[in-house]
């Protein structure tokens, strides 16, 4: 989208989970600048759970380090909460310092996208618009619940039988870098 494209995020409801109080302030200011009015900023996983159980959300932006590292636990819970209306809400993970192991662990929460901090507002807006366009189905397989990591689900690799009932007979699987 060009910078002259129109954008209306007034009806978007966001749950923001940041590691620090000031990180939360910065994120909230960016989101308000985008025109988002409903921003939930809990201080603990308990509060986040209550919000996710009560209000319909359109987006979660979460640092797994939220509430002394319990953010990841919350996201895993939400993706597995059968009766929760927000179970499949798009999640953007915002990571500060991270190692390959922590990135993998974070992706396994079932997030739709990972963004590295610090980021300028443009990067965050790009990611929000990307997840708004994300049409991947969500899958539950083994311990994983989240968006299908196969971007263009054209089926399993050549000469390999697909594991899903609806897999085409045989075709290449494509993945896109950066997506969770």
């Amino acid at each position: 989208m060009s910078e002259q494209s129109w954008l209306n995020l007034e009806k978007v409801s966001v749950l923001a989970l940041e590691q620090s109080a000031y990180g939360m302030k910065i994120l909230a200011q960016i989101l308000r600048g985008f025109g988002i009015r409903e921003i939930h900023v809990p201080k603990t996983v308990g509060e986040a759970t209550a919000i996710a159980s009560r209000f319909p959300l359109n987006l979660i932006i979460a640092d797994p380090g939220f509430d002394d590292g319990k953010g990841q636990e919350f996201l895993r819970w939400l993706r597995r909460a059968d009766q929760n209306q927000n179970r499949f809400v798009p999640i953007i993970l915002s990571l500060g310092h991270s190692t390959p192991a922590s990135v993998k662990l974070a992706r396994d929460t079932g997030a739709n996208f990972v963004v590295a901090k610090p980021y300028p507002p443009k990067t965050l807006l790009d990611r929000i618009l990307w997840v708004a366009r994300d049409k991947r189905p969500y899958v539950e397989v083994g311990d994983y619940v989240g968006p299908d990591r196969r971007f263009k689900s054209d089926g399993p690799p050549k000469n390999v039988k697909g594991r899903r009932e609806n897999d085409p007979a045989s075709a290449p699987v494509q993945a896109e870098e950066n997506a969770a």
């Binding site: 989208m1 060009s2 910078e3 002259q4 494209s5 129109w6 954008l7 209306n8 995020l9 007034e10 009806k11 978007v12 409801s13 200011q29 960016i30 989101l31 308000r32 600048g33 985008f34 025109g35 359109n58 507002p121 443009k122 807006l125 929000i128 618009l129 708004a132």
Partner: peptide, 17 residues
């Protein structure tokens, strides 16, 4: 929610942020 009419341009949203 994003497809709601009205709002601001992306440039304005970024400037406000």
């Amino acid at each position: 929610a994003v497809q709601t009419r009205g709002g601001v341009t992306i440039a304005e949203a970024l400037q406000h942020a």
